[in-house]
Amino acid sequence: MADMAGWLTVLRLLVFTPVALLALWIHPRTTTTRQSDLIIVGCTVVAILLPSAASVFSTSPYVLIYLFGGMITMSYCTLVQRVRFRLAVVVLVAAVAIQIWCLSRRPEIDAASFEFAVSFYLSGASLLLMGSFILERTERHGFLEYLRAEILIEHIERTAHTDMLTGLANRRHFETAFEQRWVEARRSGGPLSLLIVDADHFKRYNDRHGHAVGDLVLQALAGALSSSAHRPSDVVARIGGEEFAILLPETDVEGAACVARRVHEVVAGLSVEVDGGGVGPITVSIGLACGLVRRTPSSKDLFRLADAALYEAKVSGRNRTCRARIDLPSKWSGEPLEPAAAAV
């Protein structure tokens, strides 16, 4: 449209260019996809409206070819910028309506050419909408697959580090956490305490009431231990059949003994109901070891000491806590610790 070249230049430089620059400045600062799409749609409508309006006043015989160029703008909006499908419908309907209206204002365009142009715009817009729908559906499916993968990974990680019966940390997680706390204690020079807890006469629950009731007892014990050691840094884990461990960073013998007494008190109040009544009293034996990491060879040695103390608690009557015989500076001593209630 050579006769409208001056006007088109003015429109592009003084109208569309400022709008486009403003959109480029705002676009990175948008906070939602919807805001971003609205900016793109606005620029697209302006980019189609201005030259289309100018074409109404042009006398060029090539105006029809010029108007077909609007399809490039529509393709850029829907396939390159990928606005949401609903907005793509709005912008393409508006663009096609503008183009057809401009063509209808051209008396020199015969009916056959007009019908061809209308069919061209409608078929082109339909294909673009189909492409927009497929792209959006693909993106949604991809996002859903990503979420499924994230959930699956989280589930696998949780399963790998959690005892599924009790919900506590499993032995693998306990060993990893033990080494981490050991390194931290070595760095800080503070004490690290370990309690190994074992359910007394656990086999009786299984033999008398079945394994399902035994599982209920383990779950009740898990809750009791978790409520007794509830600092964020504490680690409560099930490390064997009826054996549990409580890792207490930055805790000396007195603090560990306090936690052990609290465990005995909470466990004494447990009640597991079965058909015909309860399972009877539930008690635990506890082995306690507290070490200054710089004076204890390794985490395995601390675990071995706590395990030996547990054995002493078992053979000396159960339902009590015994402290490992390790030479550490402490205001409190005594082998074993004060027993809990009478053994089962």
Rank of each mutant, 00 (worst) to 15 (best):
E265K: 14
A260T: 01
E242G: 10
Y311A: 00
S227K: 15
D307W: 10
A237D: 12
R181C: 08
L302A: 00
A229R: 02
E242P: 06
G214L: 08
F202V: 08
G190M: 09
A237K: 12
A222G: 15
V272E: 08
V272A: 05
Q180F: 02
V274C: 13
G189D: 04
S299E: 14
E265C: 09
V183H: 14
P191H: 04
D307C: 05
G241E: 06
R304E: 11
D207T: 03
L305Y: 13
P249H: 03
A237Y: 10
D301N: 08
G223H: 05
D198F: 10
A185K: 00
G287Y: 07
G223S: 02
R238C: 13
V235P: 04
G280P: 01
S316A: 04
S227A: 15
D252T: 11
A308D: 08
V235Q: 06
T283M: 09
D200P: 10
L292H: 13
D252E: 13
R231C: 02
H230G: 07
A212G: 06
A313G: 03
P297K: 12
D198T: 08
V236A: 07
A309I: 01
T296G: 07
V279L: 12
R304N: 11
R261T: 01
K300V: 15
E273Q: 15
